[in-house]
Amino acid sequence: MPETELYDLIIVGGGPAGLTAGIYAMRAAMKTVLVERGMFGGQVAVTKEVENYPGFITIGGSELCEKFLEHATSYDLEIIEKEVVATEPGVKFHTVRLANGTELRGHALILAAGGTARKLEVPGENENFGKGVSYCATCDGFFFRNKVVAVVGGGDTALEDALYLAKITSKVYLIHRRDEFRGSRILQERVFAERNIEIIFNAVVNEILADQSGVTGVSLKDTKTGEQRQLDTEGVFIFVGFSPNNQLVPAGIKKNTSGYVITDEKCETSIPGIFAVGDLRQKYANQIVLAAADGCTAALAAAHYVETCKDCKS
């Protein structure tokens, strides 16, 4: 492939948003390439079960991602499995630079880089990652069979993974800084009904305790009284939200105070021809179905944009 090959559309990211964009871009007969450095499906791929994607009462996260990828590749979507190191806006085309030195150029660019699990930023967290600290229950839950673990968070992911861990561990402490969960009502009902889960409201983890073998417990602080106590636990699973992977977003694109890209209803950013979708974009909620919708919207908008600049020359 020539280093200066010009595409109609370049998609950076292979999660639900990026793959859906690929489907719609190919259906629009655009010359398209999708670049993904790691695992297709993003966060969905490490989700044990998905129960809220239309058409599937329940489906494994990895299986759903495989269906996204299979659908996209059925249109002969070109895929490059390399790391993107930079994106550079232009007037006639936008440039995407890969780690191996390859340079891609496209009239339109869709950024679908997703997000990354947030950290608690407390002592003992970084030092014990992989030694009791985890951000993925389906990835690491097996190692804590019949052990006591703590889950930190109050959203859907925290509740889902607490329920998952309750089936394989001896006990789950579910720790949340507020006095009620943010997760969906149906998940809350399941958590409250699960005997193997002990809920601790109004508490924050201020340190993760460990010895040479790994995590031994957590130090908690009551958010109302300030009282501190320790819990013995061999694992800590942290689900306190995500931060957008905005490192590749060009400097001229507007973002909110949390780092999410601000777009219009077409998912277009403040730079014409560059779109942001999925967990990278500022919106009301982050759900798989909304990420897929973003991918559809951005691809259709990109197709219209490309039609207006077909006379652009590289």
Rank of each mutant, 00 (worst) to 15 (best):
Y24R: 12
L220W: 12
A112V: 02
D156P: 02
S213Q: 11
V148P: 01
L64H: 04
F242V: 13
G124L: 09
S184F: 11
T257Y: 00
N246G: 02
T308A: 06
F201E: 04
F201H: 13
D140M: 09
A299R: 08
C296A: 15
L34R: 14
G115K: 03
G132Q: 01
V50E: 13
G101R: 10
A301S: 14
L174Q: 12
I208V: 09
G217R: 05
A86E: 04
E36L: 11
G42S: 08
T297N: 05
S134Y: 13
V249N: 07
G15S: 06
N206V: 04
R185C: 14
K171S: 09
E63Y: 02
K283P: 03
S74C: 10
G124Y: 08
L120P: 08
T138Y: 08
G295L: 13
N52I: 00
V96G: 01
D76Q: 15
R281P: 07
K92W: 10
L104I: 03
E78L: 15
E194D: 02
P272W: 01
G101H: 06
D211W: 05
N245A: 15
C309E: 00
K224Y: 15
E127D: 15
Y164K: 04
V12S: 03
Q230A: 15
G38I: 10
R195P: 11
F237C: 14
L163R: 08
A45P: 06
G18Y: 07
Y24G: 07
H304N: 09
K147R: 09
D211A: 01
A285M: 13
I199V: 08
A210K: 09
E307I: 02
S134W: 14
N100R: 06
E125H: 11
R281I: 07
G41M: 02
I197V: 14
A108S: 03
K255L: 01
N206S: 07
G22S: 05
A276G: 09
T269N: 08
G259V: 00
A303D: 11
G22L: 09
G124F: 14
E180A: 15
K221C: 13
P244T: 02
I274Y: 08
T225L: 14
